[in-house]
Design a protein around this nucleic acid. Structure first.
Lengths: 155, 155
DNA sequence: GGAATTAGTGGGTCGCCACCCACTATAGGG
DNA sequence: CCCTATAGTGGGTGGCGACCCACTAATTCC
């Protein structure tokens, strides 16, 4: 029988825990992993959710504009949209003005799915942020949002 | 000439930005990516840094205990230690009491390397957390640390 | 109406990471 | 002693995400 390892033997190096970079990277990976795992159970990936959210928030997009907004490879976007369309979560229609373009729009089913995925994401959030009370979560969210904004436009 | 996309066309969906899960995952990925990129320039990976940090903080380990502490696959650990030893950053010695075990210890060069890597990590931190003032960074660090602790022992 | 450009698609590659298996060497229990 | 368990190693696999290239269809510019 393997002896129970003492808790100290499992402790992570303080040198790493002092590094914001490390904590962000590690916690982010956990969050990503847990969400991805829930999506996988539904046959989805993070990009699917991102596309649904973009369509819900900003209305129908040309595929090219989704690419622009989300920063995904055009070729990969084609595959994501393909899958979402096959499942009936989005609708693809040729743009009549410029028939090269494919306009992508959310369906009712897609909207419903997105709501479920948001619930999943919030469930993961509750797991991950369990140690924090609501006010602390609000503060964290606010700080992260500002960091994200910095990353978006600062490059 | 491609027309400058309006900023709005680049904005991420609020639905996603509202999700702590999403922000953590996205920012964490950026942090991880930037640090990994700096390490790659030196021919290193994140695990190398983690091993160096563990040895610096807790002294020499049997390889098996490093595996335990860092939660890496034993086989992968062998490769990491191998590389670090080849570069002179750690020293491997057979444990005389139990000759199956390999004791891994940090060398002077390893300690110096770790200091440099910490500096890299802090540089990344300065980039990523640029929008936050020192006090806000302190708060963020503190919140993240508690989250991390919750993940460690809460499972 | 030909040339150059753009939107979308299909079919790959590459690197990373986690994981797993087979094997050797050593240790320890009956 | 033999049998089982443990420490470490080498090699390989599979998933995934990012990226890239070649190609078609449609448009625009001259």
């Amino acid at each position: 029988m393997a002896p129970e390892p003492s808790p100290a033997a499992r402790a992570l190096p303080p040198t790493l825990l002092d590094l914001g970079t490390y904590l962000l990277s590690r916690i982010g990976k956990t969050a990503r992993g847990r969400l991805a795992e829930r999506l996988t159970r539904r046959g989805l990936r993070l990009w699917d959710m991102a596309v649904l959210a973009a369509l819900a928030d900003f209305g129908p997009h040309a595929q090219r504009d989704l690419v622009q907004r989300l920063g995904i490879d055009p070729s990969d976007m084609a595959k994501v949209v393909d899958q979402l369309a096959a499942a009936g979560h989005v609708e693809r229609t040729r743009d009549q003005a410029d028939r090269r373009r494919v306009s992508v729009a959310l369906t009712g089913a897609g909207r419903a799915l997105l709501a479920e995925l948001e619930a999943e994401a919030r469930a993961v959030q509750d797991e991950v942020l369990a140690p924090l009370d609501p006010e602390e979560r609000r503060v964290l969210q606010e700080l992260l949002l500002r960091v994200q904004r910095g990353l978006s436009d600062g490059g």
